[in-house]
Structures are given as structure tokens and as C-alpha cells.
Nucleic acid binder design. Structure first.
Lengths: 134, 134
DNA sequence: GGATGGTTAAATGGAAGTGTTTAAGTTCAT
DNA sequence: ATGAACTTAAACACTTCCATTTAACCATCC
């Protein structure tokens, strides 16, 4: 039975980094090149990102599919689409227009380009009015 | 750039499972054996567990090591150990006795057996008085 | 123009994870 | 005790991930 996602090496680097050490200093301590420290740190953070996304997905399991935001849609048009679908299902969304846009940018920044949606986005809705994107 | 930890197959199974389907039903739907569905579901949940642990670790990065709870310790004795160590460091823990025990049971249930601690537990403390276990 | 801190790409060997099958083993209610 | 739901172990081909090296590339600050 394994621990978390992070290898010992990755934890080591993250800990030293949090202490404020430079990549070169860490490289000297753990006996490798700074390029390697950079790579290790990068993949560590990548793993953390994936861990977050995984838990996000688990939340959507409690939620039901609401609608799809098509690629190319205007960001500012998104909240109204969501409000409309949600009220059709008798659920009050717990965000206002601005809140929804922020939630979207934070939740899946990689699907947003400036004012537009880059890829199709699946929207899920909770009974509590919580919104999830995928 | 990859998504979460879960493969499409794993998500598929988890979704169907949440809908209340049996492993056999899912096996028929996705065209494989029930044994395989079982394995897929198991490794999916394993992945979720690891995702949780990973984020837990990130929290401990902001915290400093406080003490070790030895294997075999009585659960009811744990809070006092923690309060004592914390006050020695001039930090007020943001939980009371009951709260701490609950936090422990929720955070690392696999290390707790009835009223006793099964394995050594590392305790970390935040400047905010937040407590993390590992 | 160096020095310092950071990032990137390509290549590699070894380790670990995934989906699958088959076959056997639970647990539990009817 | 029969069946339904579920778990487990072993084995296999495939794929992905990790740490590492080397060598090069930005950015910034004296």
C-alpha cells in the first residue's frame, strides 16, 4: 500500500524549497544537478495539481450533469446559461455572475483563453447549488 | 499535460457505481468481466486515497513538526499531549479535546483502531493553530 | 559581459501502474 | 445450499512515470 503521489525525492525538494533554498543549494545538498532539481520540483507540483483535480472529480460524482459550454463561447455569457439551466431544475446556484466567472477561471484555467472558452466544458450542479466544471 | 489521476475507465466505473449499479451490471455495460470492474474500482479508490494524502502533505509544508504519537497510545490521551507541546511553542490549538479526536479519526482513520493508535503518528502544527497528521 | 537563479529538451534505464483474463475465495440473504 | 455481489491472487502485455545527465536557453542584476 503506497503513500501519497509524491516520491521521497519530490517531498525532499518541496520541503527545502519551502524553506527558501535555491535550486542550486538543494542540488548541492541532495547531490545532483540544479537542472534535475528543477525537473523534480516541476513534476512534484504537477502531481499536486493532479491530486487536486482528482478530488474535484469526486465532488462532481455527487452532482448531476447540467450542461455543456461549447468551445468558443464568450465567458460573460456563461453565467446566464448556467442560471437558466439551474432554475429549470429548481436549484439556486450559490454564486452570482462574477462569482461564477471567478470559479471557472480558478477551477479550470487551462480551458479559458482571455474572454473565451477554449474547449468544451461540462458543468455539474449539486443539490446545494454548488457548481463543478470538467 | 494530463488530467487527474483517474483513467477514463476508472471514472466510468465510479460514475456507474454512484448510480447504484452492481459490478456485474457495469461489467455488461462496458463489456468486460465483473472481476475486472472490481479491480478497476479498487484502484480508482486507491488513487483517490493517494490524492487526499498528497494534499495533506502539502498542508504540512506550512506547518512545523510538533510531536510523535507512539503506536499503542490511548486516543483519549492524545489531545493533552498535543496541547502541552503546542503551548510549549506558544501556539493555541484551534480544537478542543473532542474536536481533536474527531479530526484525528477523520484525517487518518487507518491509523486508529477502536480506542487506540495503531501506528506512530506524526503531528504538525500551523502558526494558525491548525493541526495535521501524517 | 559575468554571475545567479530558473527552465527546457532529448535520451535512457529502471520502476511502477493499467486493463485484462482466469480461477478461486469470500459474505450474505433467501 | 444455491445464487448474487463482491474480493483476491497470479500472470501478461503495454504504457507511463521517475530520476538522471548533458547541453543549451531566458532573465535579471550588478
Amino acid at each position: 500500500m503506497k503513500n501519497g503521489l509524491l516520491t521521497d525525492r519530490q517531498k525532499e525538494v518541496l520541503r527545502h524549497r519551502r524553506q527558501g533554498l535555491t535550486q542550486q543549494q538543494i542540488a548541492d545538498i541532495i547531490g545532483t544537478s540544479k537542472a534535475n532539481v528543477c525537473t523534480i520540483e516541476k513534476s512534484a507540483l504537477e502531481n499536486v495539481r493532479r491530486a487536486r483535480e482528482t478530488l474535484q472529480f469526486m465532488y462532481t460524482l455527487d452532482a448531476r450533469f447540467l450542461c455543456t459550454i461549447p468551445s468558443g463561447a464568450d465567458l460573460l455569457a456563461v453565467p446566464d446559461m448556467i442560471f437558466q439551466e439551474a432554475s429549470a431544475r429548481g436549484v439556486k446556484v450559490r454564486y452570482d455572475t462574477i462569482g461564477l466567472i471567478n470559479r471557472l477561471r480558478e477551477s479550470i484555467p487551462e480551458h479559458v483563453q482571455a474572454r473565451f472558452v477554449k474547449d468544451d466544458i461540462q458543468v455539474y450542479l449539486n443539490d446545494d447549488g454548488e457548481i463543478y466544471f470538467e
